[in-house]
Design a protein around this nucleic acid. Sequence first.
DNA 1: CAGTGGTCTAGACCACGCT
DNA 2: GCGTGGTCTAGACCACTGG
Lengths: 253, 253
Amino acid sequence: MADARRLYEKVADDLRAAIAKGDLRSGDSIPSEAELSQQHDVSRQTVRQALQQLTQEGLITGGQGRARTVRTYEPLEWHLSSYESRASHATRDPSGDQWSVDVQDQQRKPQQDVEVSLVKQPPDIVSERLAIAPGTLVVVRRRVRLVDEIPFQLADSYFVEELVRGTLLMEPGDQSAPGGLLASIGHPQVRYRDEIRVRMPLKDEATRLHLAPGTPVAEHIRTGYAEDGTSLRVMITIVPGDRHVMIYELDAS
Amino acid sequence: MADARRLYEKVADDLRAAIAKGDLRSGDSIPSEAELSQQHDVSRQTVRQALQQLTQEGLITGGQGRARTVRTYEPLEWHLSSYESRASHATRDPSGDQWSVDVQDQQRKPQQDVEVSLVKQPPDIVSERLAIAPGTLVVVRRRVRLVDEIPFQLADSYFVEELVRGTLLMEPGDQSAPGGLLASIGHPQVRYRDEIRVRMPLKDEATRLHLAPGTPVAEHIRTGYAEDGTSLRVMITIVPGDRHVMIYELDAS
DNA sequence: CAGTGGTCTAGACCACGCT
DNA sequence: GCGTGGTCTAGACCACTGG
């Protein structure tokens, strides 16, 4: 099956092959550590090393007390540019934000937990993009977005406080789209710049999103600009790789 | 520093804190396994478990014989939509592809190794997007894109053979942009759909791109469409997370 | 309660890189 | 050659999950 010299590689290759070949399908449980240890005549630690590698590759999942299973993926589509074809969707709702619409289009249940606060010292990433001096007051809207009761994204939006003072944006309960709200108070966003980085989650992010080991995330940073080129809003979203496909529709210019 | 009950978590937290605090900077080497083992009064295996976790988080890098170091990131910008502001770049070259231009703009040296072949059975992902029947002949252009001699991306383009028969596209040495070439033979792409997935690399991808353990990748799929809505081209790019930031510039419609 | 995975130890040998 | 990390074993105890 494989000519690996390392024992744990042989065990791992064996299972990888079984998964690729279809002997083990999504959701199936794989042999126990003890079984694999006997079958390959290696110590349990060596088996564990193999299994850890597969876990890190995102192929299997574990859990104390439960048998390990082959991991399943059914990612949600996240549409980041609204191409004309999507404008006709039945569930489109101009007052809600596009994300909720997107989720409902896919027959799943969106939900957002919002928390608003004021900060003087936002992360460097934010102050650079908002082009503000240190000490400028900033409003942060921290959202945990859930789908079918499961945490799906962490989405933090940052605005200069002066701009949104006294508006609904400061209300934690408000569920409307910040983009729409900015427009309604005379600050429409006419251009976006999106930056996407791919990395492993921080410990904190992994906890809050209940990420299985070996689940990478995308860090999606959207900066919204006004007509005159000033930046109005920065939104940083942490997107677990196992639950999302990000989609852009573009016109070739 | 931390109140973790697991020993390896304590060791890991300790190092994480040192990195966050700045005691250990990018590129610094961290204490050896033996040292950490003594300092925390745990076995070497426990130390290794902690270090493996940090490696998996992308915080440190290892290598047989060498001391482990704190990992450094200096990602390259990859511009996926050409916003007007970029049209003015001095190095813009209509004959080359946008990627090479991008890299040169950042004072680094691009290079591409191209390999062209014909296949009857492309991956499902491709046949679905090209909307072709099984058995349709497909041209594949497999490229390894390097920057400063280091492999940076795997970019595979797929075309229906009938469309590009006898053109330069079939020449392995050709370095011009397939997009430009498609246009020159009467098949301009007017629209793109990009899908971005985030996952851990396959074993094969990790090898070809010399990925350090704990490096996730983005799988970027671009489908190009003609005026009449038929798909002309599918390009699948494997993008290591430690070397890239993907950038989209959008007009709010 | 039996079986699973999770943590931890002590000790061994090997492969590599540097100086 | 010495110190580094990489692989492997044998055995122990704990924590959780399921029937």
